[in-house]
C-alpha cells in the first residue's frame, strides 16, 4: 500500500510539472493584462506543432524543438493579441475572455486546416521505465522521458524567475502587474509590457504544449485536452501568482492521481475538481493569491 502511495505521488509530481509551465503562462498574462486568456489552449497546440515539425521535418533534437515551440507560440501570442484581443480589452475582462475563447477556437481550426486531424508523433524512441527498488517495500516505476520533461519544466521556470527578478523587462512586468496606474506614472509603456507578457505567457504555453505532445502525440486538440487542469492549477494557486500556479499544478496533478487509489479512474477528473472546489471554498483567493477574485 505504501509503495502504491509513493507511486501515485510520483506520477502526480511528474504530471504536475507538465501542467505547471502552461499554468504559469496563463497566470502571467492574467497578472499583467487582468483577463483570463482562454486562447492558451490553442497556443499550446501551436507550440506542440512547431516542436513536432522542426523535430520531424528538420531533424532538430527535442531540446532545440522546445525553444522553437516557445518562440513560435510566443510570436503567435503577440500577433493574436495585437490583431484581436487588444481591441477587446478596454470593454472589460469578460469581453476579452470570451474573445480569447473564440480566438482559441479559430486558431485551433487554422491548425486543423493546415495540418489535418491526424496525430503526429515526435521522431524519438519511447523508452522503458526505470525500476527503482525500495527493498522490502517493492519497486517504483519512473519514466525517463517524464523525468526529462519535468527537468525541462524546472529549467523553464528557473529562467522565468530569473527574468522577472533580474532583468529590466521583468521588473517592468512586475510593476505593471502590481499597480498599473503607478507603473504608468513612472513612464512604463503599458503596450510594450503587454506585448512582452503575451510573448512570455504564450511562449510558455507553447513550451508546455510541446512537453505534453512529447508524452502523447500532437493533434489539433492537444492543448484543449489539458486546458481545464491548466486553468484549475492557475486558479487554485491564486490567479496572477506565478509560484501559486506551480503549487496549483502540483495540487491538481497529485490530487487527480491520488483519487485513482480510492475511486475508479474514470472519476479522476471529477475528484480533481472537487479538490479544487474545496481549496477555493476554504481560501477563495487561491493558495498564494493576493487578491480575492
Amino acid at each position: 500500500m505504501l509503495i502504491e502511495l509513493l507511486q501515485v505521488v510520483l506520477n502526480g509530481l511528474l504530471s504536475g510539472a507538465q501542467l505547471a509551465v502552461p499554468a504559469i503562462g496563463f497566470t502571467t498574462i492574467y497578472a499583467v493584462l487582468r483577463f483570463p486568456n482562454f486562447a492558451v489552449a490553442s497556443h499550446m497546440t501551436v507550440g506542440a506543432y512547431a516542436g513536432v515539425l522542426v523535430n520531424t521535418q528538420l531533424g532538430w533534437p527535442a531540446g532545440l524543438a522546445l525553444v522553437a515551440a516557445f518562440l513560435v507560440a510566443g510570436t503567435v501570442g503577440v500577433a493574436s493579441d495585437t490583431l484581436v484581443l487588444r481591441r477587446l480589452r478596454p470593454s472589460g475582462p469578460l469581453t476579452a475572455a470570451i474573445g480569447a475563447a473564440a480566438l482559441g477556437i479559430v486558431l485551433e481550426n487554422i491548425v486543423r486546416f493546415c495540418f489535418a486531424n491526424d496525430p503526429r508523433g515526435f521522431d524519438l524512441p519511447v523508452l522503458r521505465d526505470w525500476r527503482v527498488s525500495l527493498g522490502a517495500l517493492g519497486q517504483l516505476r519512473i519514466g525517463p522521458q517524464q523525468t526529462e520533461a519535468a527537468a525541462a519544466s524546472l529549467i523553464a521556470m528557473a529562467i522565468l524567475f530569473a527574468f522577472l527578478a533580474f532583468t529590466r523587462s521583468g521588473r517592468m512586468m512586475r510593476a505593471v502587474a502590481d499597480n498599473p496606474t503607478l507603473a504608468a506614472l513612472k513612464g512604463i509603456d503599458a503596450q510594450m509590457v503587454a506585448r512582452r507578457a503575451n510573448f512570455v505567457g504564450m511562449g510558455l504555453a507553447g513550451f508546455g504544449g510541446m512537453l505534453i505532445g512529447l508524452d502523447t502525440s500532437v493533434d489539433p486538440l492537444t492543448g484543449y485536452r489539458v486546458v481545464l487542469p491548466v486553468f484549475a492549477a492557475a486558479v487554485v494557486g491564486g490567479l496572477g501568482s506565478i509560484p501559486g500556479a506551480v503549487a496549483g499544478a502540483f495540487v491538481v496533478g497529485i490530487g487527480e492521481e491520488f483519487s485513482t487509489i480510492v475511486l475508479d479512474p474514470s472519476y479522476r477528473t471529477a475528484v480533481g475538481f472537487a479538490a479544487i472546489l474545496l481549496v477555493l471554498t476554504l481560501r477563495p483567493r487561491g493558495l498564494l493569491g493576493e487578491r480575492a477574485l
Partner: peptide, 14 residues
C-alpha cells in the same frame, strides 16, 4: 474504465 481525455494513464496501467 478510464477518462479518455487524460494525457497519461500510468496509474490505470499499473
Amino acid at each position: 474504465i478510464y477518462d479518455a481525455s487524460k494525457t497519461s494513464f500510468r496509474s490505470e496501467v499499473d
